[in-house]
Design a protein around this nucleic acid. Sequence first.
DNA 1: TTCATACTTGAACGTTGTGCAAGTGGCCTC
DNA 2: GAGGCCACTTGCACAACGTTCAAGTATGAA
Lengths: 229, 229
Amino acid sequence: MPRDTLTREQIVKAAIELLDDEGLEGLNMRALGKRLGSAATAVYWHVGSKDNLITLAGDEVWHQIALPDLATTDWRTAATQMATDLHTMLTRHSWLVQAFGSYMIFGPGKARHDDHGLAIYEAAGFTMAQADQAAAIVFTFVLGNALVPAAAASFAKKLGRDGGNAEALMHESMAKAHEIAAQFPRLRARLDTAVTDYATAPDNTFQFGLQAILDGLEARLSARVSGGA
Amino acid sequence: MPRDTLTREQIVKAAIELLDDEGLEGLNMRALGKRLGSAATAVYWHVGSKDNLITLAGDEVWHQIALPDLATTDWRTAATQMATDLHTMLTRHSWLVQAFGSYMIFGPGKARHDDHGLAIYEAAGFTMAQADQAAAIVFTFVLGNALVPAAAASFAKKLGRDGGNAEALMHESMAKAHEIAAQFPRLRARLDTAVTDYATAPDNTFQFGLQAILDGLEARLSARVSGGA
DNA sequence: TTCATACTTGAACGTTGTGCAAGTGGCCTC
DNA sequence: GAGGCCACTTGCACAACGTTCAAGTATGAA
């Protein structure tokens, strides 16, 4: 067998593919080894541990997010674009939000992203401390928004792995949730409309919330900048 | 041995304690059995599976959140209070945010909480669809805000479990993160101030962001209510 | 040709969630 | 009070997982 069949980039790429296909709990070293055509243990020489591999995979995703050019884009548009890009990225790789809670995901990719986020709010005229807060608020909002669909996707995958019939199990879970919600007046009232609303425009709430947040930040921060206290 | 030594409530209570002490990855059925003074497998008769146990534990936490009285509290205060309560709860039980990404956590406790959330925004005069969006936006913001410290806590616990010397490992990780951040101008600039800022008032950003969001929601939603389109 | 180095491999260990058959004790019925 | 049913408990076992380790194997350098 020739040398250098396995590289770190190759492994990370395969890991991301596997994570996208099977979810966070579907990634295990033996499956990854099979996908790479090598022994499971060969991976360890290149990445050290599963934890580290996930950190690397997560950071690679952050690396792929485009950064808006602040010379040609006003800050509000840039902020919207960056938040939206991150949101779609986290939605596409739904394992990343989950991993964010259990692994320490911070590397060059995320640092690059964070840095540009700060740049946007500084370009808007905010002080460093204000930019810091603004970036943190928008980031956590995106994170939280991605967490709910990620949970749903993860749950659906789990059902698919356990028994054969994922559809039936999912239907059963939905029915149980429906039954619980029906005992509360406001939840019961929206049981019918919620599904169709979401189907019509899933990203509506995210965009609406994001703009509302930027509105609020703009008003509050500029008030502090110009006025006192 | 007497009958009924073990009850579902007892198990859930012990599980929450164990989760608070050891984190999400520290919860395993054998440790739980030991804490309860029974065999690990005895738990299965009462809760079915680990997944279900975590769902029950999570919902129990939601049950413990107080709901503001809308007859004596204006909506804005009520919204702030509920969001803040949820935030402190998620911070206290940091495993819950992580579990939220991997398990389907929805039961009577969360339903009760969700329902009251909708009530707040309907009391503010929003339509049902608007209240829906507002509640979702605030909820996801709280969720995202809790996720970052949860990740940090989980990471610290993991270091403590692996090797003996958690302090040294943590210091090493911080140094590595520091080194990466130093390569980006804005991150480098705030490396020194960030820690002291956070130490001074950790909840500042959360409260500030929450109020900014409520500002934005209020402005945007009331504009839609009174004006057109 | 020889050797060291970089990389790979399969066997193995400890931990985990969980199924299963065999218990065990309290309560009901006669 | 005797017997039996049933709720509940237990220990054993298995498969899947992350990871370690000693033993390989191919490749470039000498």
